[in-house]
Design a protein around this nucleic acid. Structure first.
Length: 422
DNA sequence: TCTGGGGTCCTAGGACCC
DNA sequence: TCTGGGGTCCTAGGACCC
Protein backbone atom coordinates (compact mmCIF):
# COMPACT_ATOMS: atom_id res chain seq x y z
CA UNK A 1 0.00 0.00 0.00
CA UNK A 2 1.19 3.48 -0.82
CA UNK A 3 2.25 5.72 2.01
CA UNK A 4 0.32 8.88 2.69
CA UNK A 5 2.13 11.99 3.90
CA UNK A 6 0.46 15.03 5.37
CA UNK A 7 2.21 18.35 5.80
CA UNK A 8 0.86 20.61 8.50
CA UNK A 9 2.01 24.20 8.11
CA UNK A 10 1.03 27.07 10.39
CA UNK A 11 -0.41 30.09 8.58
CA UNK A 12 1.69 33.28 8.91
CA UNK A 13 3.13 31.63 11.99
CA UNK A 14 4.88 34.48 13.83
CA UNK A 15 2.02 36.87 13.15
CA UNK A 16 -0.48 34.25 14.31
CA UNK A 17 1.47 33.76 17.56
CA UNK A 18 1.27 37.48 18.26
CA UNK A 19 -2.47 37.48 17.63
CA UNK A 20 -3.18 34.79 20.23
CA UNK A 21 -2.73 37.23 23.08
CA UNK A 22 -4.05 40.31 21.31
CA UNK A 23 -7.78 40.04 20.55
CA UNK A 24 -7.63 43.63 19.32
CA UNK A 25 -5.47 42.37 16.45
CA UNK A 26 -7.50 39.31 15.51
CA UNK A 27 -8.73 40.82 12.27
CA UNK A 28 -6.07 43.45 11.83
CA UNK A 29 -3.06 43.44 9.51
CA UNK A 30 0.04 42.42 11.48
CA UNK A 31 3.69 42.18 10.48
CA UNK A 32 6.61 40.81 12.48
CA UNK A 33 10.12 42.19 11.97
CA UNK A 34 13.45 40.37 12.03
CA UNK A 35 16.15 41.09 14.58
CA UNK A 36 17.25 44.70 14.48
CA UNK A 37 13.88 45.42 12.89
CA UNK A 38 15.54 44.77 9.55
CA UNK A 39 12.89 43.07 7.41
CA UNK A 40 9.35 41.82 7.56
CA UNK A 41 9.62 38.10 8.36
CA UNK A 42 5.92 37.36 8.74
CA UNK A 43 2.75 39.01 7.51
CA UNK A 44 -0.79 38.08 8.55
CA UNK A 45 -3.26 37.39 5.80
CA UNK A 46 -4.70 40.88 6.21
CA UNK A 47 -1.19 42.34 5.75
CA UNK A 48 -0.58 40.12 2.73
CA UNK A 49 -3.84 41.39 1.25
CA UNK A 50 -2.39 44.90 1.50
CA UNK A 51 0.58 43.71 -0.54
CA UNK A 52 3.19 43.17 2.18
CA UNK A 53 5.57 40.31 1.63
CA UNK A 54 8.33 38.79 3.69
CA UNK A 55 12.02 39.65 3.16
CA UNK A 56 11.41 41.94 0.26
CA UNK A 57 12.53 45.39 1.22
CA UNK A 58 14.22 46.70 4.33
CA UNK A 59 11.76 47.82 6.94
CA UNK A 60 12.88 51.45 6.98
CA UNK A 61 11.72 51.77 3.39
CA UNK A 62 8.27 50.43 4.28
CA UNK A 63 7.76 52.06 7.63
CA UNK A 64 5.75 55.07 6.44
CA UNK A 65 3.51 52.99 4.23
CA UNK A 66 2.89 50.46 7.01
CA UNK A 67 1.83 53.23 9.35
CA UNK A 68 -0.44 54.77 6.76
CA UNK A 69 -2.06 51.36 6.29
CA UNK A 70 -2.47 51.06 10.08
CA UNK A 71 -0.58 47.79 10.16
CA UNK A 72 0.42 46.54 13.61
CA UNK A 73 4.23 46.29 13.65
CA UNK A 74 5.97 43.94 16.07
CA UNK A 75 9.61 43.03 16.67
CA UNK A 76 10.43 39.32 16.61
CA UNK A 77 9.83 37.42 19.84
CA UNK A 78 11.39 34.02 19.15
CA UNK A 79 11.07 32.82 22.71
CA UNK A 80 7.29 33.09 22.36
CA UNK A 81 7.21 31.49 18.90
CA UNK A 82 9.33 28.54 20.01
CA UNK A 83 6.98 27.84 22.88
CA UNK A 84 3.82 28.09 20.77
CA UNK A 85 5.47 25.83 18.19
CA UNK A 86 6.03 23.15 20.82
CA UNK A 87 2.39 23.33 21.82
CA UNK A 88 1.20 22.87 18.24
CA UNK A 89 3.36 19.76 17.79
CA UNK A 90 2.32 18.38 21.15
CA UNK A 91 -1.33 18.58 20.12
CA UNK A 92 -0.64 16.92 16.77
CA UNK A 93 1.39 14.14 18.32
CA UNK A 94 -1.67 13.06 20.30
CA UNK A 95 -3.13 11.91 17.00
CA UNK A 96 -0.17 9.95 15.68
CA UNK A 97 3.34 8.94 16.74
CA UNK A 98 4.47 9.26 13.12
CA UNK A 99 5.35 12.91 13.20
CA UNK A 100 8.46 14.69 12.00
CA UNK A 101 9.03 18.27 13.09
CA UNK A 102 10.46 19.92 10.01
CA UNK A 103 10.75 23.55 11.05
CA UNK A 104 9.40 25.91 13.70
CA UNK A 105 6.03 26.02 11.94
CA UNK A 106 5.80 22.80 9.91
CA UNK A 107 5.64 19.09 10.47
CA UNK A 108 5.10 15.99 8.35
CA UNK A 109 2.73 13.27 9.49
CA UNK A 110 2.35 9.76 8.19
CA UNK A 111 -1.34 9.02 7.87
CA UNK A 112 -2.54 5.55 8.68
CA UNK A 113 -5.55 3.77 7.36
CA UNK A 114 -8.26 6.27 8.22
CA UNK A 115 -11.21 6.03 5.93
CA UNK A 116 -11.13 9.64 5.00
CA UNK A 117 -7.82 11.51 5.08
CA UNK A 118 -9.43 14.81 4.34
CA UNK A 119 -11.82 14.46 7.24
CA UNK A 120 -8.89 13.56 9.50
CA UNK A 121 -6.97 16.63 8.34
CA UNK A 122 -9.97 18.81 9.14
CA UNK A 123 -10.06 17.35 12.65
CA UNK A 124 -6.35 18.10 13.18
CA UNK A 125 -6.79 21.62 11.94
CA UNK A 126 -9.77 22.29 14.16
CA UNK A 127 -8.10 20.82 17.22
CA UNK A 128 -4.94 22.93 16.84
CA UNK A 129 -7.08 26.01 16.39
CA UNK A 130 -9.22 25.28 19.46
CA UNK A 131 -6.40 24.23 21.77
CA UNK A 132 -3.56 26.52 20.74
CA UNK A 133 -5.19 29.27 18.73
CA UNK A 134 -3.01 29.00 15.64
CA UNK A 135 -4.46 28.46 12.15
CA UNK A 136 -2.81 25.70 10.11
CA UNK A 137 -3.08 24.41 6.55
CA UNK A 138 -2.73 20.73 5.75
CA UNK A 139 -1.82 19.14 2.43
CA UNK A 140 -1.86 15.41 1.68
CA UNK A 141 0.15 13.49 -0.94
CA UNK A 142 1.93 10.22 -1.62
CA UNK A 143 5.32 11.91 -1.18
CA UNK A 144 6.60 14.78 0.89
CA UNK A 145 7.04 16.88 -2.23
CA UNK A 146 3.43 16.30 -3.25
CA UNK A 147 2.22 17.02 0.28
CA UNK A 148 4.09 20.33 0.01
CA UNK A 149 2.35 21.09 -3.25
CA UNK A 150 -1.01 20.24 -1.67
CA UNK A 151 -0.37 22.52 1.31
CA UNK A 152 0.48 25.44 -0.91
CA UNK A 153 -2.68 24.76 -2.87
CA UNK A 154 -4.74 24.70 0.31
CA UNK A 155 -3.34 28.08 1.32
CA UNK A 156 -3.91 29.66 -2.06
CA UNK A 157 -7.49 28.49 -2.56
CA UNK A 158 -9.86 29.69 0.19
CA UNK A 159 -12.54 27.25 -0.93
CA UNK A 160 -10.28 24.44 0.35
CA UNK A 161 -10.74 25.78 3.89
CA UNK A 162 -7.15 24.97 4.78
CA UNK A 163 -7.00 21.32 3.65
CA UNK A 164 -6.26 19.69 0.31
CA UNK A 165 -5.78 16.04 -0.64
CA UNK A 166 -3.78 15.07 -3.72
CA UNK A 167 -3.99 11.31 -3.04
CA UNK A 168 -7.68 11.29 -3.72
CA UNK A 169 -7.70 13.65 -6.65
CA UNK A 170 -9.02 12.59 -10.03
CA UNK A 171 -6.50 14.61 -12.02
CA UNK A 172 -3.24 15.32 -10.24
CA UNK A 173 -1.60 16.52 -13.45
CA UNK A 174 -4.15 19.27 -13.92
CA UNK A 175 -3.17 20.55 -10.47
CA UNK A 176 0.57 20.28 -11.18
CA UNK A 177 -0.02 22.12 -14.43
CA UNK A 178 -1.12 25.16 -12.45
CA UNK A 179 1.83 25.10 -10.03
CA UNK A 180 4.83 27.22 -11.07
CA UNK A 181 8.06 25.26 -11.04
CA UNK A 182 9.55 27.82 -8.63
CA UNK A 183 6.91 26.81 -6.03
CA UNK A 184 8.24 23.26 -5.78
CA UNK A 185 10.13 22.20 -2.69
CA UNK A 186 13.80 21.96 -3.72
CA UNK A 187 13.58 24.38 -6.63
CA UNK A 188 15.10 27.69 -5.60
CA UNK A 189 15.95 30.81 -7.56
CA UNK A 190 18.88 29.35 -9.50
CA UNK A 191 17.18 26.15 -10.54
CA UNK A 192 13.91 27.91 -11.35
CA UNK A 193 15.61 30.23 -13.79
CA UNK A 194 17.65 27.36 -15.27
CA UNK A 195 14.49 25.29 -15.73
CA UNK A 196 12.60 28.14 -17.30
CA UNK A 197 15.42 28.64 -19.78
CA UNK A 198 14.83 25.02 -20.71
CA UNK A 199 11.11 25.59 -21.18
CA UNK A 200 10.10 23.96 -17.92
CA UNK A 201 7.87 26.36 -16.06
CA UNK A 202 5.29 24.18 -14.31
CA UNK A 203 5.40 21.30 -11.84
CA UNK A 204 3.81 19.07 -14.44
CA UNK A 205 6.58 19.78 -16.95
CA UNK A 206 9.23 18.99 -14.36
CA UNK A 207 7.44 15.78 -13.43
CA UNK A 208 7.73 14.53 -17.01
CA UNK A 209 11.29 15.64 -17.72
CA UNK A 210 13.89 12.88 -17.97
CA UNK A 211 15.31 11.71 -14.65
CA UNK A 212 18.84 11.50 -15.98
CA UNK A 213 18.69 15.04 -17.24
CA UNK A 214 17.44 16.26 -13.86
CA UNK A 215 20.28 14.49 -12.09
CA UNK A 216 22.84 15.83 -14.49
CA UNK A 217 21.83 19.44 -13.98
CA UNK A 218 20.40 19.49 -10.45
CA UNK A 219 22.36 16.73 -8.67
CA UNK A 220 20.64 13.76 -7.08
CA UNK A 221 18.40 16.20 -5.23
CA UNK A 222 16.85 17.21 -8.53
CA UNK A 223 16.44 13.59 -9.50
CA UNK A 224 14.62 12.89 -6.25
CA UNK A 225 12.35 15.87 -6.75
CA UNK A 226 11.26 14.55 -10.15
CA UNK A 227 10.67 11.08 -8.75
CA UNK A 228 8.68 12.48 -5.84
CA UNK A 229 6.49 14.44 -8.25
CA UNK A 230 5.83 11.14 -9.99
CA UNK A 231 4.65 9.67 -6.69
CA UNK A 232 7.73 7.65 -5.75
CA UNK A 233 8.82 8.54 -2.19
CA UNK A 234 12.52 9.43 -1.88
CA UNK A 235 12.31 11.43 1.34
CA UNK A 236 11.11 9.32 4.24
CA UNK A 237 9.64 10.41 7.51
CA UNK A 238 12.32 11.06 10.13
CA UNK A 239 11.03 10.55 13.64
CA UNK A 240 13.68 11.75 16.03
CA UNK A 241 14.67 15.36 15.88
CA UNK A 242 18.30 14.81 14.92
CA UNK A 243 21.14 16.51 16.75
CA UNK A 244 22.56 19.54 14.96
CA UNK A 245 25.77 18.96 13.04
CA UNK A 246 26.70 22.59 13.28
CA UNK A 247 25.55 25.38 15.56
CA UNK A 248 25.73 29.01 14.55
CA UNK A 249 25.16 32.09 16.68
CA UNK A 250 25.48 35.50 15.12
CA UNK A 251 23.87 38.91 15.25
CA UNK A 252 24.07 42.12 13.41
CA UNK A 253 24.81 44.94 15.80
CA UNK A 254 22.30 47.68 16.48
CA UNK A 255 25.10 50.13 15.80
CA UNK A 256 28.43 49.64 14.00
CA UNK A 257 31.29 48.52 16.23
CA UNK A 258 35.00 49.13 15.81
CA UNK A 259 36.70 48.18 19.07
CA UNK A 260 38.06 44.68 19.54
CA UNK A 261 36.76 44.73 23.12
CA UNK A 262 33.19 45.04 21.87
CA UNK A 263 33.65 42.28 19.31
CA UNK A 264 35.13 40.07 22.02
CA UNK A 265 32.18 40.68 24.26
CA UNK A 266 29.72 39.85 21.49
CA UNK A 267 31.64 36.70 20.58
CA UNK A 268 31.65 35.65 24.24
CA UNK A 269 27.89 35.93 24.40
CA UNK A 270 27.39 34.03 21.13
CA UNK A 271 29.82 31.29 22.15
CA UNK A 272 28.09 30.95 25.47
CA UNK A 273 24.72 30.42 23.79
CA UNK A 274 26.12 28.06 21.17
CA UNK A 275 27.68 25.93 23.92
CA UNK A 276 24.41 25.91 25.82
CA UNK A 277 22.69 24.46 22.81
CA UNK A 278 25.52 22.01 22.30
CA UNK A 279 25.07 20.70 25.83
CA UNK A 280 21.31 20.64 25.57
CA UNK A 281 21.61 18.09 22.76
CA UNK A 282 24.26 16.15 24.73
CA UNK A 283 27.00 16.84 22.23
CA UNK A 284 30.63 17.90 22.21
CA UNK A 285 32.46 19.86 19.55
CA UNK A 286 35.84 19.56 17.90
CA UNK A 287 35.61 22.70 15.81
CA UNK A 288 34.94 26.39 16.24
CA UNK A 289 34.91 29.11 13.63
CA UNK A 290 34.43 32.83 14.12
CA UNK A 291 33.71 35.49 11.55
CA UNK A 292 33.38 39.25 11.38
CA UNK A 293 32.05 41.46 8.64
CA UNK A 294 31.52 45.14 7.88
CA UNK A 295 28.31 46.55 6.42
CA UNK A 296 28.22 45.79 2.69
CA UNK A 297 25.43 48.32 2.19
CA UNK A 298 27.64 51.16 3.32
CA UNK A 299 29.92 53.00 1.00
CA UNK A 300 33.04 52.68 3.11
CA UNK A 301 36.05 50.34 3.40
CA UNK A 302 34.90 46.74 3.56
CA UNK A 303 36.44 43.79 5.35
CA UNK A 304 35.19 40.39 6.27
CA UNK A 305 37.07 37.33 7.38
CA UNK A 306 36.67 34.00 9.10
CA UNK A 307 39.04 31.64 10.86
CA UNK A 308 38.64 28.35 12.60
CA UNK A 309 40.38 26.06 15.01
CA UNK A 310 40.20 22.37 15.70
CA UNK A 311 40.56 20.84 19.12
CA UNK A 312 42.44 17.64 19.86
CA UNK A 313 39.83 16.70 22.46
CA UNK A 314 36.14 17.56 22.07
CA UNK A 315 34.45 19.72 24.68
CA UNK A 316 31.29 21.59 25.56
CA UNK A 317 32.93 23.88 28.08
CA UNK A 318 31.89 27.48 27.57
CA UNK A 319 34.99 29.09 29.01
CA UNK A 320 37.35 26.90 26.99
CA UNK A 321 35.56 27.87 23.81
CA UNK A 322 35.41 31.56 24.68
CA UNK A 323 39.18 31.62 25.16
CA UNK A 324 39.63 30.08 21.73
CA UNK A 325 37.15 32.51 20.19
CA UNK A 326 39.08 35.46 21.58
CA UNK A 327 42.34 34.02 20.37
CA UNK A 328 40.86 33.57 16.90
CA UNK A 329 39.56 37.13 16.84
CA UNK A 330 43.07 38.44 17.45
CA UNK A 331 44.13 36.69 14.27
CA UNK A 332 41.61 38.39 12.01
CA UNK A 333 40.66 41.63 13.72
CA UNK A 334 41.80 44.70 11.82
CA UNK A 335 41.47 48.11 13.41
CA UNK A 336 40.03 50.95 11.39
CA UNK A 337 36.95 49.16 10.12
CA UNK A 338 33.41 49.52 11.37
CA UNK A 339 31.96 46.06 11.94
CA UNK A 340 28.31 45.19 11.44
CA UNK A 341 28.22 41.58 12.44
CA UNK A 342 30.13 38.81 14.17
CA UNK A 343 29.38 35.16 14.68
CA UNK A 344 30.48 31.81 16.04
CA UNK A 345 30.02 28.41 14.41
CA UNK A 346 30.58 25.12 16.19
CA UNK A 347 31.21 22.22 13.80
CA UNK A 348 32.53 18.65 13.89
CA UNK A 349 29.98 17.91 16.57
CA UNK A 350 29.74 14.45 18.11
CA UNK A 351 27.48 12.83 20.65
CA UNK A 352 28.74 12.97 24.22
CA UNK A 353 28.73 9.17 24.40
CA UNK A 354 31.30 8.99 21.60
CA UNK A 355 33.83 11.09 23.45
CA UNK A 356 37.25 9.45 23.04
CA UNK A 357 39.34 8.37 25.98
CA UNK A 358 42.75 9.85 26.45
CA UNK A 359 45.64 8.58 28.50
CA UNK A 360 46.98 11.98 29.42
CA UNK A 361 44.00 14.23 29.76
CA UNK A 362 40.67 13.63 31.44
CA UNK A 363 37.94 13.68 28.79
CA UNK A 364 35.46 16.48 29.17
CA UNK A 365 32.55 14.24 30.09
CA UNK A 366 34.46 12.81 33.05
CA UNK A 367 35.91 16.10 34.25
CA UNK A 368 34.94 18.66 36.86
CA UNK A 369 34.17 21.14 34.09
CA UNK A 370 31.39 18.85 33.01
CA UNK A 371 29.75 19.01 36.43
CA UNK A 372 30.19 22.75 36.54
CA UNK A 373 28.50 23.23 33.18
CA UNK A 374 25.66 20.92 34.20
CA UNK A 375 25.08 23.03 37.28
CA UNK A 376 25.08 26.26 35.29
CA UNK A 377 22.56 24.81 32.85
CA UNK A 378 20.34 23.60 35.66
CA UNK A 379 20.25 27.01 37.30
CA UNK A 380 19.46 28.75 34.01
CA UNK A 381 16.76 26.26 33.19
CA UNK A 382 15.12 26.76 36.56
CA UNK A 383 15.53 30.48 37.04
CA UNK A 384 15.57 31.76 33.48
CA UNK A 385 18.16 32.28 30.74
CA UNK A 386 21.36 34.06 31.75
CA UNK A 387 20.75 33.87 35.50
CA UNK A 388 24.35 32.65 35.59
CA UNK A 389 26.52 33.97 32.80
CA UNK A 390 30.15 34.49 31.84
CA UNK A 391 31.44 37.92 32.86
CA UNK A 392 33.15 38.27 29.48
CA UNK A 393 29.73 38.17 27.80
CA UNK A 394 28.85 41.50 29.37
CA UNK A 395 26.30 42.11 32.06
CA UNK A 396 24.22 44.85 30.54
CA UNK A 397 22.86 45.95 27.17
CA UNK A 398 25.31 47.97 25.09
CA UNK A 399 24.76 50.75 22.60
CA UNK A 400 25.42 48.19 19.87
CA UNK A 401 22.94 45.65 21.23
CA UNK A 402 20.15 44.51 18.97
CA UNK A 403 17.38 47.00 18.22
CA UNK A 404 13.88 45.80 19.02
CA UNK A 405 11.51 48.72 19.03
CA UNK A 406 8.35 46.80 19.87
CA UNK A 407 8.74 43.26 21.13
CA UNK A 408 5.67 41.71 22.71
CA UNK A 409 5.87 40.15 26.19
CA UNK A 410 7.10 36.55 26.40
CA UNK A 411 3.66 35.60 27.71
CA UNK A 412 4.20 31.88 28.03
CA UNK A 413 7.82 31.54 29.11
CA UNK A 414 8.49 34.35 31.62
CA UNK A 415 6.44 34.59 34.77
CA UNK A 416 7.04 38.31 34.98
CA UNK A 417 5.58 38.80 31.52
CA UNK A 418 2.33 36.90 32.03
CA UNK A 419 -0.67 38.48 30.46
CA UNK A 420 -2.91 40.18 33.01
CA UNK A 421 -6.65 39.80 32.75
CA UNK A 422 -9.24 42.00 34.33
C1' DT B 1 19.96 55.95 11.26
C1' DC B 2 18.01 51.93 9.71
C1' DT B 3 19.15 45.84 5.01
C1' DG B 4 17.96 38.55 9.57
C1' DG B 5 19.42 34.21 11.62
C1' DG B 6 19.47 29.97 11.50
C1' DG B 7 20.29 25.08 9.12
C1' DT B 8 21.10 20.78 5.40
C1' DC B 9 23.06 18.17 1.59
C1' DC B 10 25.89 17.48 -2.61
C1' DT B 11 29.89 17.88 -5.66
C1' DA B 12 34.31 18.97 -7.69
C1' DG B 13 38.88 19.00 -7.13
C1' DG B 14 43.08 18.63 -4.57
C1' DA B 15 45.88 15.98 -1.26
C1' DC B 16 47.51 11.83 -0.10
C1' DC B 17 48.39 6.93 -0.15
C1' DC B 18 49.66 2.55 -2.14
C1' DT C 1 65.69 9.13 -19.14
C1' DC C 2 61.50 7.21 -18.90
C1' DT C 3 57.31 8.68 -15.37
C1' DG C 4 50.69 4.94 -13.73
C1' DG C 5 46.48 4.57 -11.94
C1' DG C 6 43.08 3.93 -8.63
C1' DG C 7 40.98 4.77 -4.20
C1' DT C 8 39.79 7.64 -0.26
C1' DC C 9 39.57 11.62 2.45
C1' DC C 10 38.95 16.44 3.10
C1' DT C 11 37.43 21.03 2.08
C1' DA C 12 35.32 24.95 -0.04
C1' DG C 13 31.64 26.45 -2.32
C1' DG C 14 27.12 26.30 -4.10
C1' DA C 15 22.54 24.95 -4.10
C1' DC C 16 18.51 24.46 -1.22
C1' DC C 17 15.18 24.94 3.10
C1' DC C 18 12.55 27.78 6.84
Amino acid sequence: MKQVFALCDCDSFYASCEKIFRPDLWHAPVVVLSNNDGFIIAASKEAKALGYKTIEKPYFQLEDQLKRDKVAILSANFELYGDISNRVFLVLSRFTPDIEVYSIDECFLLLGAQKDNLEFARLLRETVWNWVGVPVSIGIGHTKTLAKVATRWAKKHPECKGVFDLTNHSDVDSVLDKVPVSDIWGVGRQYASFLEQNNISTAKQLKYSPIKWAKQHMTVMGQRTVEELRGKPCFMLGHEPSAKKSILRSRSFGRLVYRIEDLNEALSAYTERACEQLRSQHSLTYGIQIFVTTNPHKNEPQYSNAVYSRLSMPTANTSTMIKIAHHLLEKIYKPGYRYLKAGVILFDIIDESLSPNNLFKTPYHLSKEYDLMKTVDRINNNYGPRTVTMASSGLEAKPWSMRQSSRSPRYTTRLSELREVG
